[in-house]
Design a protein around this nucleic acid. Sequence first.
DNA 1: ATATAGGGTGGTGTCTACCG
DNA 2: CGGTAGACACCACCCTATAT
Length: 260
Amino acid sequence: MKILVSFVLRKGQIERFNKVIPEHLRTRLLRKFILNEYELPKDESELVSLFLEPEESEVYPFRLSEEVLERLDILVDKVNNYGEKLASQKTTNRSSIMRNIMDRIIEKYEKNPVSERKWKMKPVHVTKEQKELLQKYIDQREISAVLEDFILEEYKGPSVSVQELKRRPKEKMEILVITISDDATEYLKKIISQYRAEDKVKMAHILRDAINQLIKKLENENPQKKALELRLKHTIEELMQYSTIEEVQELLENYNTKEE
DNA sequence: ATATAGGGTGGTGTCTACCG
DNA sequence: CGGTAGACACCACCCTATAT
């Protein structure tokens, strides 16, 4: 579920952002960046800059997932706690964090440009069960994206024998149409090339294996556990950043009480 | 088994009205 | 002024049917 949220950015930020990241990758990369990479500035003067309002601004909406918004709110809280320490009455908001995020992500992709995402459709025969499980864990429209990320970031190749890989289930197969990027396709081809030609391992075999591994991963993933891990991660980040021993103890106590 | 074609749709960016 | 909400057009992507 994505929510449309507007942000007040510095004038020109959007133009730069759009320049470094090609269309149709923008919000996708932004969401990933916020969840997995972005960290609050460690440098005090830069942190203080989060309380400044831009001289010239522009309003721009992004469609973000609840997960991303939650992360943003946590960051806002953190910065505001810091603001209190400075005896400042000023508060920060999602927008000021977003301005900093935009700076960082523009910086990142200026250094490591991304090319346009070329993709192709790949109809794959899967069992009804596989299809239903995917739909159970993933929003219909995100199956391709989740699978693609999984392949590029985690998938290391089949962990089963060639026979097992090529074994056809007795039940009738259904077609699952996925669209994955050329990068992901290339990666899968590389895996195929590691097999002997006479094994006749095809793209579909590897894709089905990747789907199986993804399903296994999703089944083991307990949403509550994941949320807890995320919170723990944020708490640790907070501890690392600007805390004295007393504050560490206080934070830990807060963490424990929140647990109940 | 896999690739492609064509049509529908919902995510996306943009604009505008509005709220506190 | 900072932010939200809704309407809307576009087109990337998804799905189904069909071809290779």
